[in-house]
Design a protein around this nucleic acid. Structure first.
Lengths: 344, 344
DNA sequence: TTGTAAGCGTTATCAC
DNA sequence: GTGATAACGCTTACAA
């Protein structure tokens, strides 16, 4: 009942083979006769063998572990990223050790050390706490997603293009005044591209525009409060047709709610576009037109870049990449009910 | 530069101690003189030592790994669970290996086998694919959360109480007709308690009630469609004050959206209560009154139960629990704008 | 307080 | 095709 652990040694004894042969059964079965394969299979079954991959890792150095550091999974965006990453198990067989970053550099360091102690083969970073320079210094394969990444491989959405798509749609909707609403975003963050895309498109098309940035505070409620103020300000602007491009769907939804509560519906002089295609965009009273990040594609790219590096590390003479590879993924415009139907 | 791995042997040689002493430095530092501790610390630093916890696991059997199987993390409910579980790292130091269940028993088996091969000390199961009987058969510490759990330890929300809370509020709101909307839920699922709580409360209070169940299909859109039909049906019922208790906030929000699009606001003859306190409940045009699951408390309980079992396994003569422990966590009524203000 | 030596359960190398 | 044997890097009696 309380069977002690069965090991290769036991199987070997039981079958009159050597441990080596048992090992081969797992790693290179073709090198055994079918007959012997069956003998071993049977012994495995009869003795109730249970693999120990940790021992194998110690012996061959391939942990098949990949570390992940996410800032949180409260936001659907990160949850979906994580979802997609974990789902690659079926394809690549990497096991994922997941840590939630604390926005605390010290703590994140300890996470990384812990991951290194468990011999991860690679690291996927979504949190913003540790600089890419520091990440690079660990000398292991790294891929970052949608964050600063000067010194490591990365995958980002083409935020600039997203800004252009959103703004172009609003212009096609004949909005005579364009507004972009965002939190204070440093220029080195990929998402800053949304602002540039917006601005450039407005300029090119010669439409008057305004960029409203603010610190929305740390909570949903504080965000609502700030956006409420912005709503009131915009309401004063008169009734020309306003096209508003928001940094994300949450902001858009909050703004939309203010509109609904005032007008009972979405009046034609408001056209809104969000970003992220998060659930709230489809769940809003009037489903929100938004720029969707192609998360699955991003993750596929991230895994490709990571595996590229990890495979290199397994060679006798690993030749690290001469320069980090950066990939951009085009976002997708998803037209719903907060803009006029329109073929672009 | 491409420094070879530094091991205890190297440190030992460098410091003229034995490997044992180096080991003790990590596991029982007090048994060394301060002086020698510093010597070793310095050597560690100078040689650039990097722990290898896998080797340690092989030697002492304590992996500090815990496996998690979630059905998905697309739903905020699961994402938040995962969030809370992962966040316990700071407290308990268990590392988490996360798998996304496929609703496919075979595949989930392979996940579990993989986890066993990596010598997890315990397993947290949120997916519904594998029966608790099967889970128990693996002979390792298991805790399930909010699912069938006859043969293993578990943590659940007190769904019955939740149903009672929601229904009582609607009755206090003077609703003269009570309706519960749910998908087809088998009785053995914990969430079925919500239905019983609703029904019992209606009966006790002698208020006419109706339970509407349906298969809402696999997508958000199909859910919208079905709820739209239900909305139309309820609209025909006349204008008595209706109190509707939904199985979750998503249903509630969809229903609310139908109301808004028809009436432009929430008319007083509709009172709505959701379940889960998911983001959509607060983000809706009219923030939704809901029954919140205390996820953090649930997770704390789950970890307690798991650690209890895992610690037992570390004893010389582990005495497994004579019977699985089941814990219930009370839900919390969160009053917002889809019900009348009311002190209960 | 410190050291010796035998594991832990695999894989890798080199023979046969 | 198969087997001995030495790693892999750490822990843990048992000694001293």
């Amino acid at each position: 009942m309380s069977r002690k652990k069965v090991t290769f040694a036991d199987i070997a004894e039981y079958t009159n083979f050597s441990k080596t042969t048992i090992s081969r059964y797992f790693n290179n079965p073709d090198s055994l006769t079918i007959e012997n394969q069956e003998k071993i299979a049977q012994a495995l079954d009869e003795l109730g063998y249970q693999e120990n991959k940790l021992a194998r890792v110690l012996a061959n150095g391939k942990s098949e572990f990949v570390g992940i550091i996410v800032p949180n999974i409260y936001l659907h965006y990160y949850a979906e990223m994580l979802n997609q990453i974990l789902s690659t198990y079926g394809e690549h067989n990497y096991k994922f050790l997941v840590f939630i970053g604390d926005n605390d550099k010290k703590i994140e360091q300890t996470y990384i050390n812990e991951l290194l102690a468990y011999k991860i083969e690679g690291l996927i970073v979504l949190s913003h706490t540790t600089t890419s320079e520091e990440l690079a210094s660990y000398q292991i394969p790294v891929v970052t997603i949608e964050r600063e990444s000067a010194h490591v491989c990365s995958v980002c959405t083409d935020n600039y293009l997203g800004g252009v798509q959103a703004t172009s749609l609003l212009i096609k909707n004949n909005c005579s005044r364009l507004i972009h609403i965002n939190s204070n975003t440093p220029e080195y963050v990929p998402a800053y591209g949304r602002i540039r895309g917006f601005e450039d498109t407005c300029k090119t098309s010669n439409v008057p525009y305004e960029i409203i940035t603010a610190d929305f505070g740390p909570t949903y409620d504080s965000t609502v409060e700030h956006i409420g103020r912005i709503f009131n300000r915009i309401e004063q602007m008169g009734d020309e047709k306003k096209g508003i491009f928001f940094a994300n769907d949450t902001y858009t939804n909050i703004f939309l709610n203010f509109i609904i509560r005032k007008y009972g519906s979405l009046p034609p002089h408001y056209r809104l576009v969000g970003f992220d295609n998060s659930p709230i965009a489809s769940e809003a009273v009037f489903p929100i037109t938004t720029i969707g990040q192609q998360i699955e594609t991003m993750v596929r790219n991230a895994m490709e870049l990571l595996i590229l590096q990890m495979n290199e590390m397994k060679k006798r003479v690993p030749k690290p990449l001469s320069a980090p590879i950066h990939r951009q993924v085009a976002p997708v415009l998803i037209q719903r009910d907060t803009t006029d139907p329109c073929t672009m």
